[in-house]
């Protein structure tokens, strides 16, 4: 059985004759999947579209920035969080954000609900721990406050699959830093050394303060981000460029969120 949410991934395979599933179940009009709750903790239904992420307060500025980079308005009107999660492409734009937020993927089957931390959800390119009888019904995360951002590199100014993507979340109240990397490994990667490095700086200077980071700190953070990558050469970019641009993105992201409280 094949599930169809927004259709932006599955339909390409059908149109190009790569897949001919016997049965397709469209879940794009299940109202229960389109819920969105915010109450210090965010519960986002799998059916929330990118357009909604842009139009509504979805409890993550980085997720909103990521949603703006997804495809085109036409794609954003139908593509969903759940589709991005279930497809599990390393280039899925919302996925580095979910990783950086320490989000939990919520799965449901007849047997009941299963909650899998995003860090354990993806197992490879377009591979994850979802069982055939399960449905991704949403994701949840703690509202991490305003200090977060997403960026991605691509050779076109819109409608481009990421050569590399990065999400940075600095949760000042919970005193944690999350860095998620897209398109630079078989799964979404966490830059844990970089996270630790940044957390130590915040720890030393105070989590709730505006600080101007030093050039050296930014550079080191960027370097550590890049070392977390496991990139390859492919049709969209080279491994060397991916490492390079991740370092630049890391530096820029940290200098941007530093002042956000």
């Amino acid at each position: 059985m094949t599930l169809l949410a927004g259709g932006t991934d599955l339909m390409v395979d059908l149109n190009f004759g790569r897949k001919r599933p016997e049965h397709v179940v469209a879940i794009d009009r299940v109202p229960e999947l389109a819920h969105l709750e915010r109450n210090g903790h965010v519960r986002m239904g799998a059916g929330v579209t990118y357009t909604r992420m842009l139009a509504e307060d979805v409890g993550s500025a980085a997720l909103r920035e990521a949603a703006r980079t997804v495809g085109s308005p036409q794609i954003r009107n139908v593509g969903t969080l759940g589709g991005n999660v279930a497809t599990s492409s390393p280039a899925g734009d919302t996925l580095p954000v979910l990783a950086a937020l320490d989000a939990v993927v919520v799965l449901r089957s007849k047997q009941g609900e299963r909650r899998v931390p995003f860090a354990h959800f993806m197992t490879g390119p377009k591979k994850n721990v979802r069982r055939a009888d399960e449905l991704v019904i949403g994701a949840e995360w703690d509202d991490a406050g305003p200090a977060q951002t997403f960026m991605k590199a691509g050779t076109r100014n819109a409608m481009v699959i990421a050569i590399a993507g990065l999400a940075l979340v600095v949760d000042r109240s919970r005193k944690r830093v999350g860095v998620g990397l897209g398109s630079c490994g078989p799964t979404i990667l966490r830059a844990s050394q970089a996270e630790g490095f940044a957390a130590a700086i915040f720890e030393a200077h105070g989590w709730d303060r505006h600080l101007t980071p030093s050039e050296a700190e930014l550079k080191e953070f960027g370097r550590l981000v890049a070392t977390a990558a496991r990139p390859i050469d492919d049709v969209r970019g080279t491994a060397a460029y991916r490492r390079h641009v991740l370092a630049v993105m890391g530096e820029r992201a940290l200098s941007r969120v530093w002042s956000m409280t």
Binding site: E65, R68, T69, T149, F150, M151, K152, A153, G154, R156, N157, A158, M159, V160, A162, V248, M249, R252, R256
Partner: peptide
């Protein structure tokens, strides 16, 4: 960013 290199990718707000 939409008027800068990288466009929607939010890569630069003028840096570089």
């Amino acid at each position: 960013p939409l008027e800068l290199p990288g466009g929607a990718g939010n890569l630069t707000h003028g840096e570089g």
